[in-house]
Nucleic acid binder design. Structure first.
Lengths: 196, 196, 196, 196
DNA sequence: AATGAATGAGCGTTCATTCAT
DNA sequence: GATGAATGAACGCTCATTCAT
């Protein structure tokens, strides 16, 4: 049952979500205890269970909201672009920008994908995001801009490039997001354009 | 202190490693308890600690051995190939074959990369493997086979493609490893060859 | 992190300290398990760790509080006595009275002194108490009441007499505290007065 | 059943006793595991149980042998001394020499006295040793050398002085055994001689 | 005499969750 | 809305002891 919260309640809830997200990402989901979260923001244990039915549900909510946010950001980024290729490029750039800005959520995605319990939810969200990209690939094929192929496969390949480069070069090595995005775009467009 | 094991001990140890690996991959590292592992193979709890100093050390050992195995397999696969491009192609194919055959280790890698505690070890291993590939990319550039660029970056991009496609299409959708490897190779070679 | 306790919490804490002290003294520190303590007062295991960070910390707290209590009692006992010799005598008497009343703490002191882990804390507390007595010995020497000598050494000798006699005759043989205190005082005063 | 041991077996046994004694004294009886002992001398676990029925029995044996050794040493030290007072003095000196040389056994005595399980054995041994000293005190009284009093009580007082000074000044502060023995003897003889 | 392997109860501790106030 | 207190199963790990070889 959705609880109707006062403004103060809404703030508390947000505070809990944000603090928990950071701790989950830094420490891992399992090693982060509810006690640690509530102590971190200086409230009693009951508070946590006033806002969330369980630690697991909070985590699922974080995951779901993050996936939604990423998708919305990508949609906004390509809005108004006419050429499929442009949409693909901006989609890649936006996803890398998002990864750079939400490093901790990125780490959470990685963990969630690895654990059976959360993997199905992750798969579903990923599939939706990739389907968006695949549509643009398909359009580009229809327009004759790129050679025919399996659009889902190509979209996934691009996602693989973008997320891996973001992790290694942006998160781990701290290099500039734009620079790495340029490289990712170049690699991906070549990958789908082929010798054309 | 290295313990000298009898043949029976060696077998028990292997049994423990294998069973634990499977459980870690299926259930997650944290949710899998030592009790679950020893019950699974029908021995007392002390047996685990006779062979391993801790659950964490066993996990690190699994990780380290898996990374070594993958690297060795790749090296064997490209042995004797003269052209850098061929080495790159076979490297990709071998890594996907390995992923297909060691699905559970693949999942473990994903988890380990996501948790601060294990991430450094993973990074180091990954860096070694990628450096191998980067050398071939560099050679290909020197030979004028592919346009100049950052070899480490391109090697990582290829790793991103290969691992992501393996996860989604081979592990999750159960498609043929060879077919997906073809697609990965095609995408990657285009990615580095560019308009050439 | 200091926890703020309600009155009920304070009571529970005291209950735990008292019960644990008794069990430690009767059974030994190591042989007494946390489970035994919480079962003894009929609460869940978590309760123990709500009030104390560890079994060891609880033990240290018991030790520290006991040393403080003994010292305070001695200070109160000699308050207002002008002659150093009187202070020494009353100090001995009070320490034996305390030993008689706190037999279990006495045993804990003995154990703690014997184990490397707790010995440093014990030494420190003992040194403080002995320094008090040594000051009176020094004063008596300055007054010419007793022959010169090493005050710390003599104070320790008196502590040796008092604690040993308390253990053997009061605790083990159950003889009257006053009677033994008389003997201890007599022996000690002769010891420091010498042929005077 | 007493096992008849070969010479090599006898050596092994002694090695185990000595190593265990040191570990018990340094680390505590409970915190020292059988595994630690056998690993420390590089043998398998079975060896321990070949020579001793249990860890506890080994400890009791160490205690018993130490008490016997101390007593024998004291008896040898006073052999041939005619005056009771001399016997008392040399008894004190010998016990402090023994304490200085067997610091670890001294610590073990202290622990054993504090734990219900071993305390009765300790008490018995102590009583025997003190009775020896008390006899000399009695003799001295009979000879009119010292004023009348309770010999057992005075003997215990002297033991208290000697053992406490040994612990604090010889073991903890590392001062010279002879110097401290002088002080102990002086204090004790005054204590029993009184104003005489 | 000695080994390496195994046992399994028990340890100190943690933690998601519940609840009275 | 929020607190401090409590629960108790489960955790990773230890250890005295036993046993087949």
């Amino acid at each position: 049952m959705e609880r109707r919260l006062t403004e103060r309640g809404e703030q508390r809830r947000t505070q809990l979500v944000e603090f928990a997200t950071r701790r989950f990402a830094e420490n891992g989901y399992h090693p982060t205890s509810v006690a640690e979260i509530v102590e971190g923001i200086g409230v009693g244990k009951g508070v946590f269970y006033w806002y969330f039915p369980s630690k697991e549900q909070l985590f699922r909510e974080i995951l779901r909201d993050a996936q939604r946010d990423l998708r919305k950001r990508q949609q906004q980024a390509i809005e108004g672009l006419d050429l499929p290729i442009d949409r693909i490029e901006q989609g890649i750039r936006e996803s890398m920008r998002w990864s750079a800005e939400n490093r901790h959520l990125f780490v959470l995605f990685q963990f969630a994908t690895s654990e059976e319990r959360f993997a199905p939810a992750m798969r579903k969200g990923e599939e939706v995001a990739v389907a968006d990209a695949a549509r643009h690939v398909k359009d580009a094929m229809a327009d004759g801009e790129i050679p025919d192929g399996d659009p889902m496969l190509q979209a996934h390949a691009m996602l693989g490039v973008a997320s891996h480069l973001a992790r290694v070069f942006i998160h781990e090595q701290g290099r500039s997001g734009d620079e790495i995005a340029d490289a990712a775009v170049e690699f991906c467009l070549r990958g789908i354009l082929g010798g054309a």
